[in-house]
Design a protein around this nucleic acid. Structure first.
Lengths: 141, 141
DNA sequence: GTACCTGCAAAAGATTTGCATCTTT
DNA sequence: AAAGATGCAAATCTTTTGCAGGTAC
């Protein structure tokens, strides 16, 4: 993808076009495979040694807000601990930071059966975890 | 649950029984719902104001190693960014830190149909993400 | 008694913030 | 010219580490 295409993306979202933003977009699209901020910074440094770390973080935030990129896993997530050891899934409440366990044997069976038939090439499945994102109907959290 | 039951859990795992470990286990089991380290520390402070933060982290690590508790989401995870906006799932390689996209319309349809029939009480689903944990067959990562 | 734990304070790693200066529109 | 973006250094937040002293078995 060329610089102009990144510009277009930015303009479509109403963001000002700066060399820093082009560089960050380029890094993310080139690196693929879920780069960390550090990956992105390292990549950018090669061609733009004077773009600052803080700017990269600010640009990433702006890109996320505009919807041009997303964060992988559950948005801002500090580490959490769980005493429940049985396999289970999670309900992520999109309007709060609540995470609720969800166990469903029927679902587990359906998924297991599905992947018994449908193999993923060169991948041996050890565990399946479904993240169900949503919110409650009423306003109570 | 009583202190003695926590002791038993520790002994079963071959860990020494200390008041700090009992307190951490108690906190996690009482707090339920995936407390953060901070939640646990705050809870413990109420009754044991002199247990140190570093100890709580060390105890958590020991409990995880012994298998008494688990970390939620994908183990140690610093933030990652993704340029792929279409809905997709992830393959988590358990023997490396690789995360690979996995798109599967048939799977999506099956899941959507499933939750059309099976409602989760007071929860409106906005998105479904399956985390598929496993590893490659051969030794190449 | 020995191996293992704890607590402190300091360090480390990732991300954010404040603010003066510069760029984009 | 106005609005917004950048860069620097310092701050923040979570988690880890080193080590001297203490505790469980």
């Amino acid at each position: 993808m060329k610089a102009e295409e990144y510009s277009t993306k930015l303009i479509e979202k109403g963001l000002k076009v700066t060399p820093q933003r082009i560089a960050v977009l380029e890094a993310i699209f080139e690196l693929k495979n879920h780069p960390t901020a550090e990956n992105i910074i390292d990549y950018i440094r090669k061609n733009h040694p004077n773009i600052s770390t803080a700017t990269v973080y600010k640009v990433l935030e702006a890109l996320i807000l505009s919807g041009l990129i997303k964060r992988v896993t559950t948005e801002r997530d500090i580490m959490r601990y769980d005493a429940k050891l049985e396999p289970h899934h999670h309900l992520y409440y999109s309007d709060s930071d609540k995470i609720v366990d969800y166990s469903d044997e029927e679902l587990d069976k359906m998924l297991t059966d599905y992947f018994k038939k449908k193999k993923i090439s060169n991948f041996k499945i050890e565990d399946l975890k479904l993240n169900i994102i949503g919110k409650s109907f009423n306003n109570r959290k």
